[in-house]
Simulated scan of single mutants.
Amino acid sequence: MPRETLTPRERVLKAINHQEPDRVPIDISAVDEVMDALIDYYGITVNDEEVKIYMGADGRVFERKRNKAQLLLLERLHVDFRWAWAPYIGPELKAYPDGSRDGLFGIRRGGLFFGYALEHPLKDAQSVKDIEAYPWEEYANVDHYDYEQFVQECKDFHEAGYAVYGGPWAPIAFWAMDLMGMDNFMIAMYDKPEVAATLVEKIADFYYRQAEIMFQKGEGFIDIFFMGDDYGIQNGLMMNRKLWKKFFAPHLERLWKLAKSYGLKVQLHSCGSVRDLIPDFIEMGLDVLDPIQVRARGMVPEELKKEYGNQLAFHGSMDTQETLPFGSREDVKNEVLHRLKTMAPGGGFIISPSQHLLTEIPLENIVTMYETAYEYGFYSLIHKMR
C-alpha cells in the first residue's frame, strides 16, 4: 500500500483547491450510537472520560461522554477532519417528564437522534411585532457558549495537523420552519413576506454574531466554515429558487463573506435535490457542497463532477438511502471504488456518507466503506483503476 506524504490539513486543502493530494480525504458523520458501536467494534478504551454538555445543531442539549474515544476512533478510520465545538454553558433548560426538553430558540424537542419540534412557539405570529416581541436573547444568546473551550479545541486540532471545522452550524431555514411550523412558514413567504423575512433575519443575526466571535477567537486555527440547512427534497427544491434567493441567499452570502474575510473555505450541507441552486452557490463563493444525496433528482455524482467539478468540490456521496443500509459488503466496496474512479481525478472530492450514519446501517458495511476508502483511495492506485 502507498504511504501518506501529507498532513490531513494539507491533504484536505489541496483537494478543495482542485489538486490531487496523496489520497482522497476521508470524513465521517454519524449519530453517537453509531460512534459508540464503532468504538466498541475496534476495542477502543479510554479511562476518565470527561463529560461536557453540548447543544447540537438541532437545538438538543446532550452529554458527550466518549469524546476522547471518538477522537481515537477518527484516527482509526483515517478521518482527516476535526470539529471544534463551543459547549453550552447557559441557564439550565427545562426538561419534561416524557424526556423531551427545551432547546435553542425555546423550542421543545423530542424523538430519536436529531428529534423534531413538539411545539412551534411562533405558529400564531401575524405581524413583524409578533416576531420582534419573542424573547430572542433569552432563548438564543451568543454568551451562553464556552468559546474558550472552542479555541482550545481549534488549537489542539490545528497543531495536530488536522483540517479544522469551526463556526456555527447555522441552519436558518430549519429554525424558521420549526419556530413557525413548516406549513405556516411556507405560506407566510407568500402571504406575509415581511413576517417571514423578519423571522429569518432574527435567526441569521444570531448565527452571524456567533460566527464573528468564533472566527475572531479561533483565527489562524480554523480551516473551514461548515454550515448546514436543507433546501431540497427527494425530487426537487423545498421552495422555488426565487423564494430561496429572496429569503435565504442574502444571509448565506453575508456569512460566507465573513468566513472568507478570515481566510476560511466555506462548505455547505443541504440534503435533497439542490442541483438548481448550484450555480447560485458557486456565484456566492461556495467552495464545497455536502452531502450529495445521490438518489435525489439530478444529484448523480459523476454528472455534477463533469458540470461543476472545476468550480466546486464535493463532500459525501456514499449512499445512506440504499447501498449502506440494505446493500452487501461487496455492494459497499463497489460503490466506494466507483466514487474514487469517477469523482477523485483532478481533486475536488472528499469521501463521506451522504447523510448521518444511523443505527439501521449494518456495522460491517460502515467498516467496509472506511477500509476500502483508505486502502484504495491513494491517487497512485486510483489512476491505475481508471
Rank of each mutant, 00 (worst) to 15 (best):
R9G: 01
V12L: 05
V12H: 12
P21F: 03
D27G: 12
I28W: 10
D36H: 13
A37K: 14
L38Y: 15
L38G: 15
D40G: 09
T45P: 07
T45H: 12
D48F: 08
E50D: 10
K52F: 12
I53K: 15
G56R: 15
D58P: 09
F62I: 10
R64P: 03
Q70S: 13
Q70T: 09
L72Q: 11
L72C: 07
L72T: 08
R76S: 10
L77F: 07
D80S: 08
R82F: 02
A86W: 01
P87N: 14
Y88F: 08
A95F: 15
L104G: 08
R109I: 12
R109T: 10
R109V: 08
F114L: 11
K123E: 12
D124P: 01
A125D: 15
D130A: 06
P135H: 11
Y139T: 05
A140R: 07
H144I: 04
D146E: 07
Q149H: 11
F150L: 03
E153A: 04
D156A: 09
E159D: 14
A160M: 04
G167F: 07
G167N: 08
W169H: 13
I172R: 13
I172A: 06
W175I: 08
A176L: 11
F185S: 12
I187F: 15
D191S: 00
E194M: 03
L199N: 13
V200C: 11
R209I: 00
Q216D: 04
Q216Y: 03
G218F: 07
G218Y: 05
E219Q: 01
E219T: 03
I222W: 00
I224D: 11
F225T: 06
D230F: 02
F248V: 07
P250E: 14
E253H: 15
R254Q: 09
W256Q: 05
K257T: 02
A259H: 10
K260G: 01
S261V: 07
Y262G: 06
K265P: 06
Q267G: 03
S273T: 13
V274G: 02
R275D: 12
R275N: 13
L277E: 03
L277I: 08
P291W: 01
P291N: 05
P291V: 00
V294A: 01
R295Q: 12
M299E: 05
V300M: 12
Y308K: 02
G309H: 10
A313Y: 01
A313C: 03
A313K: 00
E322N: 15
E322T: 15
P325M: 00
V332Y: 15
N334H: 11
V336T: 14
A344G: 03
P345H: 14
G347I: 01
G348Y: 00
G348A: 04
H356V: 14
T359E: 09
L363W: 15
E364P: 11
Y374C: 00
R386L: 00
